[in-house]
Nucleic acid binder design. Structure first.
Length: 845
RNA sequence: GCCCGGGUGGCGAAAUCGGUAGACGCAAGGGACUUAAAAUCCCUUUUCAGCAAUGAAGUGCGGGUUCGAGUCCCGCCCCGGGCACCA
C-alpha cells in the first residue's frame, strides 16, 4: 500500500475491473427486486463538462447504492444522436453527420468511464442508427394508421437561421430555443402528431404520478391549459347583397358566458377561416384584407407582448346575440388568437382587454354584472369590473350570482340549440416535421394514384442517403437527392416520391427507454414482456429543462404504445428526479448555467488528472441539494480531495493494526456493547447513527450532500478515538469496524477509493457485492441524554439525565439545577414543559 | 396579472413532527512540524459588549398564535422558475 493516495493508479484499474466483471450487465429475466434507473440520454456533442456530470454522477451513485441494497438494477445508456449541431458542423467542415456523431459518442463513452459511471452497454442505443430509427419510423406508421399522425397546412413557427419549422414547445419568448433567432410564422404543409387527443389523459394522469416533483406537474398542467367554458353560436345577419356565406353563424368560446348580456360586439382572429368569404365584395374588403396582411407580419414577440396596442377593424358584418336577439358588429382584432373557435364575444364592461378596445374604437359598453355593494355605475368606471357579482340587466338571470349563471345560461343555450358547455385546451398538436437531413426520415410516399401512402414494414427503415449536399435551403437536403426521392409506390408499384422531411428529434427520445429492453432485437420495436416486467422506470433522473418538452412527449408516446396493445402500462416514469443546473461566473461577471457559449465550462479532464474522479464525484454531490442550482467553486473541490486523502492516510497509518483484527471480532461487536469503555462505545454509537442518517438521506430525497457530511462527521469521530498499537483489542475492533463502515458508506459516491481500501482491508468480494450496513438498534442506545434547560425559552444550562428518567424525574433534576434557581429566583413559576430527550422549559413571570 | 419555489454567518449550506439556529465543508486568521515551502495536524471564526466568566441581539420586513417559531397563520418586500391578449 502506498502512503500517498494514488488515485491516478487505482481509478483506471477499477474502471477496467468493473467493465471486465460484467457487474453492470443486467439479466432481464431476473425481475425479482428489479430497479430500473434511467438517466436522460445525452446528445453526443463531444465534450461533457462538470455540469453535465451531475446527472450521471447522481445516477451512478443511486445505481451503486441500490445494488448494495440487493436490487437487481438496470442502468442503460444511449445517445440522442440525431440533431442540428452535427448537421451544422457538416455544413461548415464537410464531415458527414454520422461520422462526427459516432466519434463524439466514442469520446463521451470514455468520459463517462473516466468518471467511474458504469452502464449496461449491451443495451446501448443510438437514435441515429438504422437499427433504432427503423422502429421510430414503424411507430410513426402505427400512429399514421390510427389517424394520430396527419399532415395539414397551417401557420407554423419558422426559424430562419435553422431553416426549419419548430414545435410550439421549442419556441421560447418568440425565439428559437436552439439559436435564439426570432421565430416567424409561415404557412406550410407539415406533419403533426395528434397529442391533443390525449390532452385530458395527460392531464388526469399527472395526479397518479406521486413520485414526480410538484413543480414539474404544475408546469405540465399549465402547458396543457384546460379551460371550461361555453360555446355560443351567434347567427350572422344575412348580407344585403344577397351573396351566400359559408356558414350562417359565428361560434365563439367563452369562460364567462355569465357576462353575455353585456356583449356589445364580436371579434375574429385575423386567421379566422371563413373571414375572406364573409367580407368578399363588401366596401370594407380591401381595408380588412390589408389589416389581416399587416397582422401576419407581426412576429410572435410583437404579438405576445402585452405592451402592444390592440388594433382592429370593422368587417361590415353583424351577428346576433342569441340571448338578447341584439345585432352587434363583427370586428377583426390582432389580439385574438386562433384559440377555441378563433372568435370571441366582447364584453367591455367585464374584460380589461375588451374595455381597452372599446374605448379606443368608441364601441358601446354595457353593464351585466353588479358588484356585491351594488355600487357599479358605468360612467364612473375607469376599467372593466372582472370580479364576481350578481347578474345585472340580464333578463331572467338578473340577480342570480354570476357563478351560478354560468351553468344556468349554458343550460339555456343547450336547450334552445344555440350553444353548449365545452372544454378547450391550450395544448396544440405536436408539429414533428423538420426540413433537415440529420433525423429519422418520415416513412411516407406520395403517389399520383394512391395519394399519401405509408412505407411497407418490410421496406423499413427508410435509410438516410449518404451522398447529399448539406445546405440549409428551407427544404430538406433529402429533397435534392434523386436517389432518395424516387421510389415505387408501396401500394401500386408505380413511380412515386418520398416525403423529404425528417422527424423532430424529440420523437426519437420519446420511446428510447422502451427500446433499451430490446436494443438488439431486429424483429420488433418493443419486447412486450420485458417492457411489462421492467417498466415503469423506477427512477428517472434528468434536467429540469425537459419538464415540458421531453417528459410530456414521452408520456404521450407511452399512452399511444399502450393503446396499440404493446405494453400494459401507460405512464413511463414512476419517480422523477430533476437535478438543478451547475452554474459558474462567466467572463462577463454574471452567473450562468455552465455552457460553452457562456465561456464558463469546467472540463472534468484536468480535474480528474489533478484530483481524481472520486474527488470530482464527491464534490459534485457535496455542492448542495441536488435538486437546486449550484455554483461551481474551483477551490472548494480541494476540500473533497482532502477528505479522501484523509481516509486513505488513516488506513495506511494503521494498516498493520487493521490487519491484526480478526474479521470475526467486528461481527461480534454487537454482543460486547456492554463491555465497551466510553470512547469506543461513543464511536460505535456514532457509526450506527451515521448508517441510519445516511440510509435515510439516500432513500428519501437523494440528499447526498448531507449524507457526505455525515460521513465526514463519522471520520471526525474516528479520529477522536486515538487508536494505537497499545489500544485494547476492543478499541481496535471498533476502529476497524468504523473504517469499514466509512468505506462502505462512501462507496456509492467515491467508488474507486472504496474498492481499493476494501480490498486493502482483506475483502475479496468487491465493495459493490458487499451488503449496505445495517443499523444495530442497541448501538444507538445512550445511558445519559443531554438536555437543554430553558427559562422563558432561553437556554441557560446543559444537563445530563439518565435516559430512563421519566418526566417527573427530569423536572426534579431541572428544578434543582443552580442555573435554573438563579434565573427563577424571586419569580413565579407558571408552567414547566418537559420534552424528554430535548429540553425543559420553565415559564416564569 | 396568475401559479409554483426560495430568502439563514464572509461563502456553499444544515436543522426529519413546533423543541438547544449555524452541523459539515470552503475561505480567512493564529499556532505546530519544516532550513524553507507544499502537505498534514491543532486552535479561532454569526454580530455586539467584555480580559474572562458571561450577557444581549440574531434565520428578508411588520404583526400574530404558542411555554417555545427558521419551521405555523396574516400582511408586505426581494430573488428564481413556469404560464400569460388562451376570452
Amino acid at each position: 500500500m502506498n502512503e500517498k493516495y494514488p488515485f491516478s493508479e487505482i481509478e483506471p484499474k477499477w474502471q477496467q475491473s468493473w467493465a471486465d466483471s460484467g457487474l453492470f450487465k443486467t439479466d432481464l429475466s431476473d425481475t425479482e427486486n428489479k430497479y430500473y434507473c434511467l438517466m436522460m440520454f445525452p446528445y453526443p456533442s463531444g465534450k461533457l463538462h462538470v455540469g453535465h456530470g451531475r446527472n450521471y454522477i447522481i445516477g451512478d451513485a443511486v445505481v451503486r447504492y441500490k445494488k448494495m441494497r440487493g436490487h437487481n438494477v438496470l442502468s442503460p445508456m444511449g445517445w440522442d444522436a440525431f440533431g442540428l449541431p452535427a448537421e451544422n458542423a457538416a455544413i461548415k467542415t464537410g464531415t458527414p453527420p454520422r461520422e462526427s456523431t459516432l466519434s463524439n459518442i466514442a469520446i463521451m463513452k470514455e468520459q463517462l468511464a473516466a468518471w467511474g459511471c458504469c452502464y449496461d452497454w449491451d443495451k446501448e442505443v443510438a437514435s441515429c442508427e438504422p437499427e433504432y430509427y427503423k422502429w421510430t419510423q414503424w411507430l410513426f406508421i402505427q400512429m399514421f394508421n390510427r389517424g394520430l399522425a396527419y399532415k395539414k397546412k397551417s401557420n407554423v413557427n419558422w426559424c430562419p437561421d435553422c431553416a426549419t419549422v419548430l414545435a410550439n414547445e421549442q419556441v421560447v419568448d418568440g425565439c428559437c430555443d436552439r439559436c435564439d433567432s426570432t421565430v416567424i410564422q409561415k404557412a406550410l404543409e407539415q406533419w403533426f402528431f395528434k397529442i391533443t387527443d390525449y390532452a385530458q389523459r395527460l392531464l388526469d394522469d399527472l395526479d397518479t404520478l406521486d413520485g414526480w416533483p410538484e413543480r414539474v406537474k404544475t408546469m405540465q398542467r399549465n402547458w396543457i391549459g384546460r379551460s371550461e367554458g361555453t360555446e355560443i353560436d351567434f347567427a350572422l345577419v344575412p348580407r344585403e347583397d344577397g351573396a351566400n356565406d359559408p356558414s350562417d353563424k359565428v361560434s365563439c368560446f367563452t369562460t364567462r358566458v355569465d357576462t353575455i348580456y353585456g356583449c356589445t360586439y364580436m371579434v375574429l382572429a385575423p386567421e379566422y377561416g371563413d373571414l375572406k368569404e364573409l367580407i368578399a365584395g363588401l366596401p370594407q374588403e380591401t381595408e380588412v384584407l390589408q389589416f389581416v396582411a399587416d397582422s401576419a407580419k407581426l412576429t410572435n414577440i410583437d404579438r405576445e407582448s402585452d405592451t402592444l396596442e390592440k388594433k382592429g377593424i370593422f368587417t361590415g358584418r353583424y351577428v346576433v346575440n342569441p340571448y338578447t336577439n341584439e345585432k352587434v358588429p363583427l370586428w377583426v382584432g390582432d389580439y385574438v388568437l386562433m384559440y377555441g373557435t378563433g372568435a370571441v364575444m366582447a364584453v367591455p364592461a367585464h374584460d380589461t382587454r375588451d374595455w381597452a378596445f372599446a374605448k379606443k374604437y368608441d364601441l358601446p359598453i354595457k353593464l351585466s354584472i353588479q358588484n356585491p355593494e351594488g355600487s357599479l355605475v358605468l360612467t364612473e368606471m375607469d376599467d372593466a369590473y372582472t370580479e364576481d357579482g350578481a347578474c345585472f340587466d340580464s333578463a331572467e338571470f338578473t340577480g342570480m350570482p354570476n357563478r351560478e349563471a354560468i351553468s344556468a345560461m349554458a343550460k339555456k343555450a343547450e336547450a334552445e340549440g344555440f350553444g353548449k358547455s365545452c372544454i378547450n385546451f391550450r395544448l396544440r398538436d405536436w408539429l414533428i416535421s423538420r426540413q433537415r437531413y440529420w433525423g429519422a426520415p418520415i416513412p411516407i410516399v406520395y403517389c399520383d394514384r394512391c395519394g399519401t401512402v405509408p412505407v411497407n414494414d418490410d421496406e423499413l427503415p427508410v435509410r438516410l442517403p449518404e451522398n447529399v449536399e448539406f445546405k440549409p435551403t428551407g427544404e430538406s437536403p433529402l429533397a435534392a437527392s434523386q436517389e432518395f426521392m424516387n421510389c415505387e409506390c408501396p401500394k401500386c408499384g408505380e413511380p412515386a416520391r418520398r416525403e423529404s422531411d425528417t422527424m423532430d428529434t424529440f420523437v426519437d427520445s420519446s420511446w428510447y427507454f422502451l427500446r433499451y429492453l430490446s436494443a438488439q432485437d431486429s424483429t420488433q420495436a418493443i419486447d412486450t414482456k420485458a417492457a411489462n416486467d421492467w417498466l415503469p422506470v423506477d427512477q428517472y433522473i434528468g434536467g429540469i429543462e425537459h419538464a415540458i418538452l421531453h417528459l410530456l412527449y414521452a408520456r404521450f408516446f407511452t399512452k399511444v404504445v399502450s393503446d396499440l396493445g404493446l405494453i400494459d402500462f401507460d405512464e413511463p416514469f414512476a419517480k422523477l428526479f430533476t437535478q438543478g443546473m451547475i452554474c459558474k461566473k462567466g467572463p462577463d461577471g454574471n452567473l450562468h448555467k455552465m455552457s460553452k457559449s457562456k465561456g464558463n465550462v469546467v472540463s472534468p479532464n484536468e480535474l480528474i488528472e489533478n484530483y481524481g474522479a472520486d474527488t470530482v464525484r464527491l464534490y459534485t454531490l457535496f455542492i448542495g441539494p441536488p435538486e437546486k442550482e449550484a455554483e461551481w467553486n474551483d477551490t472548494a473541490v480541494e476540500g473533497s480531495y482532502r477528505f479522501l486523502k484523509r481516509i486513505w492516510t488513516r488506513v495506511w497509518q494503521h494498516k498493520e493494526l487493521l490487519a491484526s483484527v480478526s474479521p470475526d471480532s467486528c461481527g461480534e461487536l454487537a454482543e460486547s456493547i456492554g463491555k465497551m469503555e466510553k470512547p469506543e462505545r461513543d464511536l460505535f454509537r456514532k457509526v450506527h447513527e451515521s448508517v441510519q442518517k445516511i440510509t435515510h438521506d439516500l432513500d428519501g430525497a437523494f440528499h447526498f450532500h448531507t449524507a457526505i457530511s455525515a460521513i465526514m462527521e463519522l471520520m471526525n469521530a474516528v479520529d477522536a478515538v486515538k487508536v494505537s498499537d497499545n489500544s485494547s483489542e476492543q478499541v481496535k475492533a471498533v476502529f476497524r469496524d468504523a473504517m469499514e463502515k466509512v468505506i462502505l458508506l462512501i462507496s456509492p459516491f467515491a467508488p474507486h477509493i472504496a474498492e481499493e481500501l476494501w480490498k486493502e482491508l482483506g475483502h475479496d468480494g468487491g465493495v459493490l457485492s458487499a451488503d449496505w450496513p445495517e443499523v444495530i438498534e442497541e448501538a444507538l442506545h445512550r445511558d445519559e441524554i443531554q438536555m437543554a434547560l430553558q427559562v422563558n425559552g432561553k437556554v441557560r444550562e446543559q444537563i445530563f439525565v439518565p435516559s430512563s428518567a421519566g418526566k417527573d424525574e427530569i423536572e426534579k433534576i431541572a428544578m434543582e439545577n443552580p442555573a435554573v434557581q438563579k434565573w427563577t429566583e424571586g419569580k413565579t413559576i407558571r408552567k414547566v414543559i418537559v420534552v424528554p430527550g430535548r429540553l425543559v422549559n420553565i415559564a416564569v413571570s
